[in-house]
Structure formats: C-alpha cells, structure tokens
Design a protein around this nucleic acid. Structure first.
Length: 548
RNA sequence: GCGCCCGUAGCUCAGUUGGACAGAGCAGCGGCUUCCUAAGCCGCAGGUCGGAGGUUCGAGUCCUCCCGGGCGUACCA
C-alpha cells in the first residue's frame, strides 16, 4: 500500500475508534517540509472542529491517543495537526512494491482504455512552425503521454485549416514572389505573408513554370494555393520531425464541409432557436448566455465562419467516440473557446467532454527583432532552427517547464550558454550517474536486474537520505496524475528536479559499490530511482541518456 | 470599456483541496576531487508574495477594488 493510503486507513481507524464523524471527502494529508512534523501530517482535526464543537488541538490529541497502526512508529498532535512518523520498514516496503511494478510504476488505470483525444499544434499551413508552436507541440505531446499513463487510449490529432482567406493570401503572396523572381514589380499583399521562406519557393516556381501565370487569375489562384499548401505542409512536417512529435490523425477542414456536417450542425443550432439573421448573416445569440458578443456563424455570402466549422468539428469528435477531448490552444483563442463550449452546451453535449489547455505565448529573449513573433510579418524563429541550435531535449524541457497559463520567456543565450547548469541536464545527469553505477556494479558481479533486486534484503537502507528518496519516489504516481488532470506537465519537471536534487547530494556523500550487504540494497533503491527518472523524462519526450 | 491570463529574491520561476517560520535554479561571494562521470557537492547572502480592504482559528492561495503587463474584443483563422 502506498504511504498516503496507509495514513488514511490508520486515521480512519482512529476516527472509528473514537466514534468521530468522517470528514466529507478524503482525509486531507500533507507531506510536511520539516522533519520534526513527521513523514505525513493531517489537518483532519481542523475539519472536525466545527462539527464536534471542540478545538482542533483537543481532537488531534484524542486521535493521537486512539491511533494504533503497525506502519507508524509514533504520532503527535501539534497545534491541531496530526503528525505521523513511519517505521523505516514501512518505507522500505514501498520500495519493494515499486520494484515489483517495475517500469509500469507511475501508471494508472483511471482511463480504462477509453478514447481520449489531444488536439494540438493545428497550425495553419501558412508558414513553418515557430518557437511558439514549439511550446504547443511539447505541451500537447507531453499531455498525450500523461493521459496514456493514466490509462486512456490517446489519439494525437492535428486540425488542418487548408482553406479560407488566409490560404488565399498565402497563395497570392507566393505568386508575388514568383512574379518578383521573373523580374516583375509585384508587391506581396500588405496583409499577406512577408516571410523569406516564400522567396525561394517563388524562384523555384519561376524556373519551373516560366511565365505561365502573368496575372492573378482563378487558374493562378488554384495552382498557387495547391503548391503553397503542399510546400508549407512539407516545412511543418520537418519541424514536427525535429521536435519528435507525430500525429495519429490529420483532419482537414475541407473534409468536414464535404461530409455536410457543417450544414447539419448549423441547422441543429437553428432548431434550438439560438440563431438569428442580421445584415444577411447568421449570428449566434451568445450574449443571451452571458458571453461578451454574438459571433457570426454564416457570413452574408453564405460561407461558414471558422467558428461554425470549429463547432461542427467538435460534434464530429464526439461522434467519433471520444469520451474526452483536450485542445491545446494559445491564449488568443479564449473567446473562440467560450463560443464553442457554449454551442456544445446548447446542443446538449456533456459538459466534461471538451477541455482546453490554454497557454500563453513564448517570448524570445536575446534575439533582436523577433521578440514579438508574427508569421505573417515574417518575424519569427523557426522551431527547427531553434532545435538544431539547442537540441531537442533542451527545447522540449524548457517549453513545458513553466505552467501553460503563464508567459514563457525563453532566454536564448541562457539556454545555450548554461548547457552546464541547465535543469534538464541536471535531471538527465542523475540518470546517467545511476546508469554508470550499474555498469560498474555489473562488472563487480553485483545484482543489477529487477528480478534480482526485488528480492534483495532492504534492511541496510537506514540512511535518512535513502528513506527520504523512497518517500519521494512514492509520490511519483500522484505527480503523474496531477500533471495530467491539471494540464500541467511542469509539475513533472518540478518533481524530477526535486528528485535529482536529492540524489546528487546522496551520491556525493554515500558510496554505493563495495559496501557489502548495503550495496545490493542501495542498488535496489537506485534501480527504482532510475526507473522513475526514465519514465518521467519519457513522459516529457526527453531522453534519459546512459552516458553524458 | 468589456472578457480571460499573469504580477512571489537582482533574473527565470515553483508553491496540492486556504494551514505550521515563504522555496528552487541562475546570477554574486567562499569552500570541496587518491574512491561509482565535478554536467556534481557544501556554505553565505538575498523577498513588506504588485497595492488596499474583506472572509477565516489561519490567506502567496478565496472575495472586492485599484495599479502594472499580456492576449482577445473581425462577416481572419
């Protein structure tokens, strides 16, 4: 049994013995920072104070007196808190269980193999991916990994918006570059795409097609749109390959139209009476439901807006059987999200179906001219280039290290020059050191396999750092769960940095090899630690190197 | 104006469902290597948790207002 479960059972037992009521919900537990407060503490007495009409400290005192559980060596009531101290054997038992679970330690079965979708990146094919998309790629992929670990059947999906006005502008921008390559003085449209990346493609097309498209005719639109989207998708695939993210499903906006779904969902909204006509367009009555404004669903020219398609897309997701959908999106989509959620609510879809992981933007520090990135203005740093410069591990780790809803200041110079003090290296180095010990241990004929270590005598593990490490390892499954359910992979970074920060001093102080009976026991501890580091890093899409 | 997010040490940020004297890394200063990788370890210094009220036995955490920053407020996506 895990330590928290142990403590809950013991406290519940004491409550029963005293005929005290149980608090509504779980018995609250904490891991106190100070050693003198024990291994686990509970403020359950505070919760019962009102109901029992007695001061918390009295209740805690009674609980301490009635407390009796073999896993705990002593109990103390301090200032209303109930502080529990575990017996070392109970802590070591946790290690044995971790070794029994092996590489699966940290996984859950909460998802029960139900289908869950993570939609992320979904960048329009109007340019390569920038470092901003990098945050989303790292975040989405980590969340997908985390939900897999919770036992969900996860689908990674990319929504491809390959139609509409932006694509038209892209095509026209490319055509302008093509004309320029042929010596014509054709400017890129002011609200078009000004990035360099279209210049080279324009030149290629000039030499391939010659003067075939002198005017911006419907034929030209068709030709350039096709080429532009194809080439942009090529770049996006390169960027995704660079960061190591791959998708299971690509959904194109055009598919939704062709299936008649957009029309059908619009009609459904109309049937619910939440659509009205004004100025030739169809609007949704969102203000009646408390939102800031009414959005257009169908333009006066009869074409559906992005929002309308987005609503239909989510209906489609539901029909495809997803029990839960997580959309990773930038903060500039918040209003859109409110509108989609409202529409789904009106249509009667369950509230818990759609979740958004909203993230703020990445600011690049140390690169002149691109502090405020804009694909359209051609002012950005390509994700692939960043990764080539810093390495995939550093980029991925940095991108998820901060909570999504906070701005991320990516200090280029720091990320580069601190390759020595970088937190990702700090964590990876802990793994590398353990790997190194295991190489030496094997040479020395010590037990190194899980099979051998799970039956080894753990009683030599009496050092305070050793017991503290085991207690920290015990937290891992909860961290995984919380990181997933709160859409905060940064919690995993924090945890692993803590773990590495406990291991390095221990390593420095305590020798593992050549210590007689203590050696196998310590190897057992390090085996579990290595497994957790591996698992944690892999959940973030970061490697766990054997050698650095 | 309205909506959402952020404001914690010089810098970048953590901080469970409110809890026991506010944490980490970097930067700064001073130490540590006959031994499993020094990409490491030990120590010092550094903060009126943006401000003001309020709720509570207890507020960095919840509520209100204010200040500062970001994003949105399109028949763009």
């Amino acid at each position: 049994m895990r330590l928290e479960a142990l403590a809950r059972a013991a406290i519940a037992d004491a409550l029963r013995r005293l005929s005290f009521p149980s608090p509504s919900g779980e018995i609250p537990l904490e891991r106190p920072e100070k050693a003198e407060y024990g291994d686990i503490s509970s403020r359950v007495a505070f919760l019962l104070a009102k109901e029992l009409k007695r001061p918390p400290q009295e209740i805690a005192g009674d609980l301490a007196a009635a407390f009796s559980h073999p896993a705990f060596s002593h109990v103390e009531a301090v200032g209303g808190f109930l502080n529990l101290t575990l017996r070392p054997e109970a802590i070591r038992e946790v290690l044995r269980q971790i070794l029994a679970e092996g590489e699966r330690y940290g996984e859950w079965e909460l998802g029960k193999r139900r289908p869950l979708q993570v939609e992320f990146v979904s960048s329009n094919p109007t340019g390569p991916l920038t470092v901003g998309h990098g945050r989303q790629a790292a975040l989405g992929d980590a969340l997908a990994n985390l939900f897999s670990a919770l036992g969900w059947e996860v689908t990674r999906e990319y929504y491809l918006n390959d139609e509409g006005r932006q694509i038209e502008l892209l095509a026209q921008s490319l055509w302008a570059r093509y004309r320029q390559a042929l010596g014509a003085d054709v400017p890129v449209p002011e609200d078009g795409y000004h990035g360099d990346y279209l210049v080279a493609i324009g030149e290629e097309l000039a030499s391939e097609w010659g003067d075939r498209y002198p005017e911006w005719t419907p034929e030209a639109v068709e030709a350039f749109r096709g080429v532009a989207v194809k080439r942009m998708m090529g770049m996006i695939h390169e960027d995704l390959a660079a960061i190591g993210v791959s998708f299971d499903v690509w959904t194109r906006e055009g598919d939704l139209h062709r299936r008649g779904l957009v029309r059908e969902v619009f009609e459904a909204l109309k049937d619910r009476g939440v659509v009205y006509e004004k100025d030739g367009a169809h609007w949704m009555k969102s203000t009646e439901f408390g939102l800031a404004r009414d959005p257009v669903l169908i333009r006066s020219d009869g074409t559906p807006t992005y929002l309308m398609v987005d609503i239909a897309y989510h209906v489609d997701k539901y029909r495809r059987g997803f029990v839960r959908v997580v959309d990773v999106q930038g903060a500039d989509h918040i209003e859109e999200q409110q509108q989609v959620k409202l529409a789904l609510r009106i249509l009667g879809y369950p509230e818990e179906f759609l979740h958004y992981c909203v993230h703020q933007f990445v600011t690049l520090k140390g690169r002149e001219g691109i502090e405020r990135m804009s694909t359209r203005a051609g002012r950005f740093l390509r994700l692939k280039d960043l990764i080539e410069e810093l390495g995939r591990d550093v980029v991925r780790y940095f991108m998820v290290r901060r909570k999504p809803e906070a701005h991320l200041i990516f200090d280029m110079e720091l990320a580069k020059k601190t390759s020595v003090e970088n937190p990702v290296y700090y964590v990876q180095y802990a793994h590398t050191r353990i790997a190194s010990i295991f190489r030496e241990a094997e040479k020395a004929g010590e037990p190194v396999t899980r099979h051998a270590l799970r039956v080894t005598d753990l009683s030599p593990l009496t050092d305070r750092d050793e017991l503290a490490l085991i207690k920290e390892l015990d937290r891992f499954p909860d961290v995984v769960r919380r990181a997933a359910e709160s859409y905060g992979p940064h919690l995993l970074c924090e945890y692993m940095e803590e773990l590495a920060g406990m291991f390095h001093p221990y390593y420095n102080r305590v020798r593992i090899l050549g210590q007689g009976g203590a050696t196998p026991a310590r190897l057992a501890l390090l085996y579990a630690l290595r497994a957790v580091l591996q698992k944690g890093l892999s959940l973030l899409g970061v490697t766990a190197p054997e050698v650095m």
